[in-house]
């Protein structure tokens, strides 16, 4: 007996009883999964992700305060002529970049949730970490959370201005966006904060202005007292290098290409970095951070490999790693 015979009812016409296509019984999503499969995958995903939340966070606080203290000591040491400037320059670049990593944990309250005993530590870590890049924590947190809420939205994602067609254009844009007349990075942030108009946004704008004036005041004072080269190598140049590095690895690389990619599993990529896991600050697994911001940076790699089969089933390109 043929397959058609099995499908046919007695007396029925072949054309009306045999389906013309293998159309599914229920509508499938763009990922080809029905909603029951998606729900089961999501439950499994949450159960796995939960295992990676929290953990030891004090090293972030030690790193933040330790690096800030060392960086701060460079200024009097430079004036006293007791500083190895090339070494201080390299370390300052490292502190500028690393400071964003520690502040990033504080932005997501991973060091201390509101109302917890360690909340003060969370806020203190955030506050000191971004001083070397002249980017107040209040502004950094507001803008970063907006980035999470509206990831890859051309109008609402504050980091959308980092988008560029390729790696070299992205590096160029990290510098271009900081130009005084360009509506990119911090200038873009200031405009968004002014539009928000909330008390928190106003506070962030005031703190930004104060920190920028302190930065300029320090540079000018040191420069006119004979320490311009020292000021350039301890703060001015490391800040620029750090900001470009942060913009490239934390914004462009994990989100490129941004256009039209606003879905939960498509707004961030898994990518293989040429400089490795540590030097790219764990950003190869940035998708995990966007799915679960409560997973600390040092556990995203581990969480990715645990979640990889589910991510693959959800249509994520997991081939790079």
């Amino acid at each position: 007996m043929s397959e058609n015979d099995l499908l046919l009812r007695t007396g029925a016409d072949t054309e009306t009883t045999v389906p013309a296509s293998d159309r599914p019984a229920m509508p499938l999503g763009p990922d080809g999964l029905d909603r029951y499969t998606r729900r089961d995958l999501r439950k499994e995903e949450i159960a796995i992700a939960r295992q990676f939340h929290g953990g030891t966070m004090w090293p972030y606080a030690v790193a933040a305060f330790g690096c800030f203290a060392v960086w701060l000591s460079f200024f009097p040491l430079a004036i006293m002529g007791m500083l190895n400037l090339p070494l201080a320059f390299v370390l300052s670049c490292f502190f500028c970049v690393g400071g964003y990593v520690t502040s990033h944990e504080a932005m997501h309250s991973n060091i201390g949730q509101p109302g917890s005993k360690t909340r003060w530590l969370n806020e203190a870590v955030g506050a000191v970490s971004t001083i070397p890049i002249v980017f107040p924590f209040s502004m950094a947190r507001l803008m970063h959370l907006e980035h999470h809420y509206h990831c890859n939205d051309p109008l609402k994602d504050p980091d959308y201005t980092d988008e560029a067609p390729n790696m070299w254009a992205a590096w160029y844009k990290t510098w271009y966006n900081r130009q005084p007349g360009v509506d990119g990075s911090i200038h873009h942030y200031k405009r968004i904060l002014a539009e928000m108009g909330t008390p928190a946004a106003r506070r962030a704008l005031v703190e930004t202005m104060i920190l920028q004036l302190v930065f300029m005041g320090t540079l000018f004072t040191m420069a006119w007292n004979g320490y311009a080269i020292e000021a350039a190598l301890i703060w001015w140049l490391p800040r620029h290098i750090g900001l470009s590095y942060i913009r490239f690895f934390l914004s462009w690389a994990p989100h490129h290409p941004r256009e039209g990619k606003t879905g939960r599993y498509e707004n961030t990529n898994i990518f293989k970095s040429r400089v490795g896991h540590i030097l790219s600050m764990g950003m190869q697994y940035h998708l995990i951070h966007h799915l679960y911001p409560g997973i600390p940076n040092h556990r995203t790699k581990e969480a990715y490999y645990a979640l990889k089969p589910i991510l693959k089933a959800r249509g994520v390109d997991v081939s790079p790693l």
Partner: peptide, 27 residues
Amino acid sequence: LKQVLAWMPFFFGIGFIAPLTAQLMQL
């Protein structure tokens, strides 16, 4: 303060680039 920040590139030129240039020339 807004006016000061608006003219910051010019102030940066005389406040920082000028002494930095002079000190690099001497170095």
